[in-house]
């Protein structure tokens, strides 16, 4: 998936010289997760460069560049470090088109690794997607596999408004399914690791069905797509697994079509429960598919605590917890 993200940058930079890439350790070194490796050598220091450690400076400057007419794609090293830039994202990038009545806009992409499972403790594990989906004017994207990561990132860079691009860091090296005690399957043995060369996009705002099923719909994104599929395999429940891919704008049609068919719904995310994006999904499902529901919508999420360090697998909503929820909704 790292290669797919790298490739997406290269394709976008090749096609449009207004695309510039920067962030902490992003230039010469190629990023701590290697997602921008080789870009500086290929495109030069004016197109891909290192930034000082100032997230508000990185995003603030990117807003100015984007307003000028460039298409910056910046990296926040960990989503947990995003908070100094939050004002720039929420009050500036997200609102510039609106408040200037279209006189200025901010077509920038802000990439950041999210999620736990690397013993990163509370400052390298967070999933702050709901802090973005709550903000008018932001598009929020989270891929679950290399094919989507490349196609969505190119689409994000080409989008004329600010896009938050969340990269589940536990997926960088393989389709991690939550079975942390087993060896990780590499992406090379996964269907969606086949990444075409060159240009293609995955349209923002479209979900994908990862598994068809008739008994319950699982709504997931990022790492949790693979965790959900593992839970389905472990329990033998005939579930339909929907990979949302983009949280805003949301592909509501795919969600409601599926829940209307199955009559049950489990929402899974790694982020904390209260006011998480799962609450939005549960509300939408009951609003649009209430008369099809045979059971209450379940949420399986991280607990409402900071992300712990040594106990991270007790915190992580793994396949066992998801499996229990699947069985619970079927027994209702």
């Amino acid at each position: 998936m790292v290669q797919a993200i790298r490739d997406a940058h290269a394709v976008a930079m090749e096609r449009d010289e207004s695309v510039v890439v920067f962030g902490e350790d992003v230039g010469y070194f190629g990023g701590v997760f290697r997602c921008t490796q080789g870009l500086q050598q290929r495109f030069g220091e004016s197109r891909c460069f290192d930034a000082p450690i100032t997230e508000s400076g990185i995003v603030g400057a990117a807003v100015g560049m984007a307003a000028y007419g460039l298409r910056p794609c910046v990296e926040i090293q960990f989503a947990d470090y995003m908070y100094p830039a939050y004002d720039q994202i929420v009050s500036e990038a997200a609102r510039l088109r609106y408040r200037s009545a279209g006189d200025f806009s901010a077509p920038l992409t802000i990439r950041m690794p999210v999620g736990g499972g690397i013993f990163g403790g509370q400052t390298h594990s967070q999933s702050p997607e709901a802090l973005f989906t709550h903000v008018a004017g932001l598009t929020t994207v989270i891929p679950s596999n290399p094919y989507d990561a490349k196609g969505l990132l190119i689409a994000a860079i080409e989008d004329d408004d600010p896009v938050i691009f969340l990269e589940p860091k536990r997926l960088y090296n393989g389709p991690f399914d939550g079975h942390h005690d087993r060896n990780l399957t590499p992406w090379s043995r996964h269907d969606l690791s086949e990444v075409p060369e060159g240009y293609y996009t995955v349209p923002l705002g479209t979900a994908a069905r990862r598994r068809s099923g008739s008994d319950v719909t699982v709504l997931a994104y990022g790492t949790m797509v693979h965790v959900a599929l593992a839970a389905v395999a472990d329990t033998g429940v005939d579930a339909e697994v929907i990979d949302l891919r983009t949280l805003v704008p949301l592909d509501l049609t795919t969600i409601i079509d599926s829940v209307s068919k199955t009559g049950r719904c489990v929402v899974v995310h790694e982020a904390t429960l209260t006011s998480g994006f799962g609450a939005e999904l549960a509300a939408l499902v009951q609003q649009h598919a209430f008369y099809y529901l045979a059971a209450p919508v379940e949420r399986v999420t991280g607990y409402d605590t900071p992300y712990p360090h040594s106990q991270e697998w007790a915190y992580f909503p793994g396949p066992e917890r998801v499996g229990k929820a699947l069985i619970r909704v079927l027994e209702t």
């Binding site: 000028y68 720039q88 500036e92």
Partner: peptide
Amino acid sequence: FFSISGNLATQFVQGVGWAMACALK
């Protein structure tokens, strides 16, 4: 005249970004 924000200081750094874009172009 760039669109004014009500949040203070946010635009001080955006101006730097705009200037960087001028130089990059």
